[in-house]
Design a protein around this nucleic acid. Structure first.
Length: 196
DNA sequence: TCACTGATCGTCT
DNA sequence: GACGATCAGTGAG
């Protein structure tokens, strides 16, 4: 596995969301590496009322306006962090939410972070994966195409059949099919009908 | 397996 | 002061 180059990332947020399925999210720490295959993503677009960037650039969402391949990490519901990959050119606010990973490396360490979770549950859901990989606001704005504590890698195993559905947990602009996932993978979050 | 609920706090109005 | 791009627990079928 090698790091993804920015030039390989589609300059289109929907295409990027699909492209990232099967790729690897890597978390480097002094204690070693944790990583997982990306198996579920959602696209949040320009002019999309469900996107954090819809209200314009603010201190919180400014990372979504960085050129594609940068991290946008935000805090939700008083307890959790979620990580996105910015998806467009500099100055345009759009991002891909990474919703679930299939754990690859550092599984024992992830289990210590998420006691009681089975391997396929360790990183199933946006809040779960950031907890498992110890990702928080420190990494907001980080370039995921550069060496560092968090980066994107090539696919270790090619993506299987990719499914498409509505996005999970939103009320505004809820109809577009902007969620992508690897069909039948037990590490994908959401109800069964949105995993098949 | 689904539907519902409480916890909890940063962000923007 | 209201509201979440969530999660784990509960109870019903």
């Amino acid at each position: 596995m090698r790091r993804l180059r920015r030039s390989e990332l589609p300059v289109n947020t929907v295409a990027l969301a699909r492209y990232l399925i099967g790729k690897t999210l890597v978390r480097e720490t002094p204690q070693g590496r944790m990583s997982g295959r990306i198996v579920e993503t959602e696209a949040y677009l320009v002019g999309d009322a469900a996107a954090h960037s819809f209200i314009g650039k603010t201190k919180r969402n400014q990372s979504t306006f960085l050129k594609r391949g940068h991290a946008y990490v935000y805090f939700v519901y008083g307890n959790w962090y979620a990580i996105n990959v910015s998806g467009e050119i500099e100055g345009v606010g759009a991002a891909v939410l990474i919703r679930a990973l299939e754990p690859l490396e550092g599984i024992e360490r992830m289990k210590r972070r998420r006691p009681g979770a089975a391997t396929h549950e360790l990183a199933r859901g946006p809040g779960c994966l950031t907890t498992a990989l110890r990702i928080d606001r420190r990494f907001d704005g980080l370039d995921l195409c550069a060496p560092g504590p968090v980066w994107l890698g090539t696919a270790v195993k090619p993506a299987g059949r990719i499914g498409r559905s509505v996005r999970i947990g939103i009320t505004k602009n809820a109809h577009p099919l902007l969620r992508f996932y690897e069909r039948g993978n037990p590490c994908v979050s959401g109800p069964v009908r949105l995993r098949a």
